[in-house]
Design a protein around this nucleic acid. Sequence first.
DNA 1: TAAACTAGTTACCTTCGCGTAACCATTGCC
DNA 2: GGCAATGGTTACGCGAAGGTAACTAGTTTA
Lengths: 112, 112
Amino acid sequence: MKDAAFCTSSCPMTRTMSVLGGKWKLILIDHLGERRVRFGQLAQRVSLISRKVLTEQLKELEDDGIVRREAFAELPPRVEYSLTAHGLALLPILAQLRSWHCSAATAEVAAA
Amino acid sequence: MKDAAFCTSSCPMTRTMSVLGGKWKLILIDHLGERRVRFGQLAQRVSLISRKVLTEQLKELEDDGIVRREAFAELPPRVEYSLTAHGLALLPILAQLRSWHCSAATAEVAAA
DNA sequence: TAAACTAGTTACCTTCGCGTAACCATTGCC
DNA sequence: GGCAATGGTTACGCGAAGGTAACTAGTTTA
């Protein structure tokens, strides 16, 4: 989200969403995890995303200091993505979000 | 997000985003907090959102069991929104997200 | 000679999110 | 009679998000 009104909002949660908002951001961070992943691997894992959007989102995450990009001068070319310290700090929070959602799903099943 | 491919994805984080994804969801949950808030109050607090979208997002959150809506048969009409137990469980996680983003902002200032 | 592999980029087009503005019902107040 | 207040709903339209397909480079493989 490059929405200027969001980035400069006085609401802290709104500013947070200007970085993490968007359909794919949290999903990509989650799939990166603690590993170094190549572009093609990421595209396979998150199969619903198109390569174009994947490139864009990774670039935004890199600009925000969440993802690190390392390109190797090889042939065929190799590019590896990994989380920075800042990005790694998000992982435990994402784990809580996931379990929050899972607990809701099991509660629904129990109620039915 | 009513995207069917998201809701039925095998990836837990993707399914989580089908509920919490979207520009406004987390911001609205954050502004509701532990209080009961009237529709008009919410529209004032989150001034960037239009009333139309506010109605839509609240309805989706209600369908997902995160928000409770109580309408009173008065004149002029009064409608109060509050978080369900499920929604309340998100608040500590949102607090972590906020402080994660704040710590990043102060680190940038320190680096500059 | 042609194809395949990687990590993109680009042009093009469609879809959807979102904003704006007008409108509704009901009652009390002036 | 007309306006205000509340909590919406509706029609309309723009702009951005996102998908598809084609194209790039250099080397290996068939």
